[in-house]
Design a protein around this nucleic acid. Structure first.
Lengths: 205, 205
DNA sequence: AAATATAATTGAACAGTGTTTAATGACAAA
DNA sequence: TTTGTCATTAAACACTGTTCAATTATATTT
């Protein structure tokens, strides 16, 4: 059935167009200012059509946030080459921060904006596989650090979350513009310098 | 001029009513679902009146976020009784976290939501005194810790920001519902347990 | 090739949003 | 009682996400 296959392909192509248009608009105007009508205009279709491809606006941005995780995973691939778990942990944080600062809108969508997570929560499975797999990677690295004698007295889950929180805190305070409390001269490099402080502390663990 | 004074008082009273209504609605429905019309309904005035007391929606929520900082400052007052800077630093984090978890909507407004900071940025002075004074308190405590020989090799500004980031990261990941990646059994207590890990690390600094 | 069935697409509507403004109402001062 | 100054309103503007009956286009069957 060549026809049916072509139809499916065409449907996929339009879905892709919607996503590409949404991403374009999201990057240049942000979440709130990217409307369904804007997206429809961009692909030269009427607004209604979007609801034949996505349940609602949240699903569109959930799909977009998946692309962010794909990029983050890709950047993390290099960590396979780092044998020592402690070095790997440090490199992981560096990559995470770099990703967040270079793709701050995507990071916002992945870890701050409510839309994609609201979509996950309203779905049947209710599980956030994108976040899961990323946190698993951190957890297993921390686990290996502990097996090598680091982080004595710590509990794996709580410690892993603390480490995630530290890097997330730094980049999210920057992305949501709360760093203006700092001495003006330091604002631009604060995340890098602050992560350096974190690494210094890790050296005694 | 008794009349003029009464007028000013009445104006203040209505401004207060608007703020109280806004807070009520914000706490029970969130930022996006609290509309100018909702607030107007609540105080039984027409929507337009609100613009004679506030420039825009952002200013209303900036005023509300100030109330949050007032409450946070009040909770921090007890720290005056803690002489040892390292103990004070630890207590500070505990209070900060407790405030965030008990007033998560207010915390969201103060440190995540864009509205109040957008108002600050569009204002002439462009300075965020609420955040400033809170961060100053942390910085000066960290400074005293360093003077007592802690945190060798660290830079004050970067270290202070890292500490803030750690606690902010923990509570903001929880508030923005990214903790679902954790083992279900640990979610409820993760922030407490995670802060415990942080304290454990501080003991070696 | 024409008629039918199926799917894609639209346009209009609904109920909301923040914000502006001309008109109105209330009330104090002259 | 008139004038002037405010406070307040209703209506409008240009949007928002979402739904749905009607239309158009395409594929299958007769």
């Amino acid at each position: 059935m060549g026809v049916a296959e072509r139809k499916i392909r065409e449907k996929e192509e339009l879905k892709d167009q919607i996503l590409k248009a949404a991403k374009r608009l999201f990057i240049e105007r942000g979440f709130e200012k990217t409307s369904i009508r804007n997206i429809a205009d961009e692909i030269e279709y009427s607004p209604g059509i979007i609801y034949h491809y996505f349940q609602d606006k949240n699903e569109i941005f959930h799909a977009l946030h998946q692309e962010g995780f794909q990029e983050l995973r890709k950047r993390m691939e290099i960590l396979g080459a780092v044998d020592d778990p402690m070095s790997r942990l440090k490199a992981m944080g560096k990559i995470y921060i770099q990703f967040a600062l270079e793709n701050s809108d995507m990071y916002d969508l992945m870890f701050i904006i409510e839309a994609p997570i609201d979509f996950v929560e309203k779905r049947d499975d209710q599980c956030w596989i994108e976040g899961d797999s990323t946190f698993n990677q951190l957890r297993s690295t921390v686990h290996q650090c502990m097996q090598k004698g680091h982080f004595k007295g710590h509990k794996l889950e709580a410690l892993s979350f603390m480490i995630w929180s530290t890097v997330h805190g730094m980049v999210s305070l920057k992305i949501r513009k709360r760093v203006i409390v700092l001495n003006a001269a330091e604002i631009d490099q604060i995340v890098e310098n602050s992560y350096h402080s974190f690494l210094l502390i890790l050296d005694n663990c």
